[in-house]
Design a protein around this nucleic acid. Sequence first.
RNA 1: CGGGGCGUGGCGCAGUCCGGUUAGCGCACCUGCUUUGGGAGCAGGGGGUCGCCGGUUCGAAUCCGGCCGCCCCGACCA
Length: 517
Amino acid sequence: MSFRRALATRRRPVSSPRSHRFPLPPHMADAVTPREEDYSQWYLDVVRNAKLADNSPARGCMIIRPNGMALWENMRDALDGMFKATGHENLYFPIFIPERFMAREAEHVEGFAKECAIVTHSRLTTNEDGDLIPDPESKLGENYIVRPTSETIIWDTYSKWIQSYRDLPLLYNQWANVVRWEMRPRLFLRTAEFLWQEGHTAHATQHEAIEEAERMLDVYATFAEEYMAMPVIRGRKTESERFPGAVDTYCIEAMMQDGKALQAGTSHFLGQNFAKAFDCTFTNEDNEVEHVWATSWGVSTRLVGGLVMTHSDDQGLVLPPKLARDQAVIVPIYFNDDQRATVLKEAERIKKELADAGVRVKLDADDNQKPGWKFAEYELQGIPVRLAIGPRDVKNENIEVARRDTKDKNIVPQEGIADRVKTMLDDIQTSLYDRALARQEEMTTTVDDYDTFKEVLEEKGGFVRAHWDGTAETEQRIQDETKATIRCIPLDQEQEGGEDMITGKPSSGRVLFAKAY
RNA sequence: CGGGGCGUGGCGCAGUCCGGUUAGCGCACCUGCUUUGGGAGCAGGGGGUCGCCGGUUCGAAUCCGGCCGCCCCGACCA
């Protein structure tokens, strides 16, 4: 069932007309810089306050804190299941790549040479001044590159594993860290080291490899929309935006709240480029020797950044229930030990009821923090549903339910609370997606002339659909003049002839421009 | 690599221009009491090589020289 169809069959929102927004104490506004004021600072404030990650002592790297790691783990588990379901197996290649491997595929080296970390020594020693230095005696015979991606080492290996068409296809994936020495890092969005998955497949035919690349793009798009509630545009990259060494790069592009696009995942048809570079051949059914056809595809911890920027607001993080580690949190309220005992007993019972119904629920019985503090904290952390129960509620058999995305808050009967929360979680998941989709559509503008194009980019931002003559020159000129790049040539759009808005040359279809992360 | 800014308890800062008690404030932390339906109050307490090295001076967080690091803005990128 498609996601759109799934949305259509969902139930109505659970909020009632009696519901009201909860007020925020003035000082809380200080925790997160409003988006309007400074979007970059807002993003950093959300990440910091939700305790997702910290900067690290190593420049450009990040320390992923438990809240951030839990998000990534949930993404990883969901994706891993989807990879397995499409026939892939996990394996692991080493972090160090012999330097000479990088040089084998010309475009590939060129693409990555400028951002490689290189291991040259294997020992430390002290010099005359007592300073620690790499021991000159330990200089390596051959340097190692810390992998920026693993195509080279993998294709060197595949060439040993593959002899015959009977060995194909190879459908492998690895979960790993990679290093790309970036000049301007931003937590999750662009860090020197990041966690990702890289799929590397080998096929007997071009057709099969292209199918694989397309299939995995579809997996990414489905994941983004169904789990992250983040609508994406599926597309193909232009030559200049292509992965170094790829014949074709497919991508999913998402629109962030500030009108900038985020490349959220890529899938590459590598042709026979790496097979040729690493002499990876197989014998086909007709006893002819051919080079293997390849794909690679990946998504990274950048997705966490995309998730943050898609749904969060000026009160902090907003998480889609499917990826939230805790979908609901129960905050008990009491004023003395007697009440504490009674309230906690009820809270425990409700927790069990929710857990039995399959809700990931946490009860925060910590006496060190007070309810008001906890409310604020869980809002910053984006927990989808908050339940509060105090002496009054115990007496009246009620419970307070607040949803993070709309900030609706209601006092409802305890009876049927599990169903109510489950329905609410479903509703949050779909309404987050709906809202993001509406924003994406609102932030997409179709233009036919360059003046309007520049004006839209300047004043509104977002995706701009325009005709392009297909040349790298025009693409470069637009980038130089507007900072916008062609994010992709969308896959599912009607073919529509037209003229390039600058050169007037014929165009076979509109492409999607945007400023990007 | 260019342009800007900043290094002072865990975090955020004041003090530096114009050198001079024991380096101060908020948050956080510890103890106690009172509190508790939206980030509690009061009292007490602990915690500092003022980025590093050198110089000037009776005396340096403060002046001078050098170095190091970080952040922001641009060029490269998932």
